[in-house]
Amino acid sequence: GFPHNFQETTYLKPTFCDNCAGFLWGVIKQGYRCKDCGMNCHKQCKDLVVFECKK
């Protein structure tokens, strides 16, 4: 597997964290999205993600 390539992201529609399944709250920059596989997560979850990037 590969490490994720997370970038701070502004979501335009309701989005949930792929790590904890919690809602990504806020208006802008609600969470992080992996540029390579599209995984979404909270800032506090991005260092805890157990799934490797599937590129």
Rank of each mutant, 00 (worst) to 15 (best):
D36Y: 05
D36E: 12
C37N: 01
G1Y: 15
T15N: 05
C17H: 01
Q44E: 15
K29V: 05
P14L: 05
V50D: 07
V27G: 07
F2Q: 06
G22P: 02
T15D: 02
H4I: 01
G26M: 05
N40T: 12
K54L: 06
E8D: 03
L24A: 04
W25S: 06
T9C: 12
T15R: 05
G38A: 14
K29M: 11
N19Y: 09
C53R: 06
V27K: 04
A21G: 10
L24S: 05
T10H: 04
V50L: 14
N5R: 08
P14Q: 00
A21W: 07
H42I: 00
P3G: 15
K29T: 05
F2D: 10
G26K: 03
K29Y: 13
T10V: 00
M39Q: 12
P14T: 01
P14F: 04
D36G: 15
C41D: 01
L12E: 07
D18F: 11
K29R: 10
R33T: 13
V50G: 11
G38H: 10
G1Q: 08
P3C: 15
W25V: 10
C37P: 00
N19R: 12
G31K: 01
G38D: 13
E8A: 14
V49Q: 11
I28F: 13
L48R: 09
T10Q: 04
F23T: 03
F51H: 04
C37S: 02
M39S: 09
H42A: 01
K54C: 08
I28G: 07
F23S: 04
E8W: 08
R33Y: 04
Y11F: 15
F6T: 03
N5I: 12
K46T: 11
Q7A: 12
T10L: 04
L24W: 02
Q7I: 07
Y32K: 09
L12Y: 08
E8M: 15
T9W: 09
C17F: 00
G22Q: 08
N5G: 11
Q7M: 14
Q44M: 13
C45Y: 02
C45D: 12
F16V: 04
K13M: 14
K46W: 12
P3H: 15
E8R: 11
Q30H: 02
D47K: 08
L24E: 04
G26H: 04
N19H: 12
C34K: 01
K35P: 09
Q30P: 02
L12R: 08
E8C: 10
K55L: 01
T15W: 03
D47Y: 10
F16G: 05
K29P: 03
K29N: 13
N19V: 12
A21L: 15
C53F: 05
D47V: 09
D18V: 09
N40Q: 12
F16T: 05
F23M: 12
Q30N: 03
V50M: 14
Y11A: 06
G22R: 10
V27P: 05
L24R: 04
G38E: 14
A21I: 14
Q7T: 06
F51L: 11
M39K: 10
G1R: 07
V27Y: 13
H4M: 05
Q44R: 14
G26R: 02
Y32A: 08
F23V: 09
N40E: 10
K13L: 12
Q44V: 14
F51C: 11
K54N: 09
V27Q: 07
D36Q: 07
N40G: 10
I28R: 10
L48P: 08
K35H: 12
K55Y: 04
C20Q: 00
N5W: 09
K54W: 04
C53T: 06
T9R: 11
C34P: 03
F51T: 04
F2T: 08
C41S: 11
I28D: 04
D18Q: 13
Y32T: 14
N5V: 07
W25T: 15
C37R: 01
K13P: 03
H4L: 00
C17Y: 01
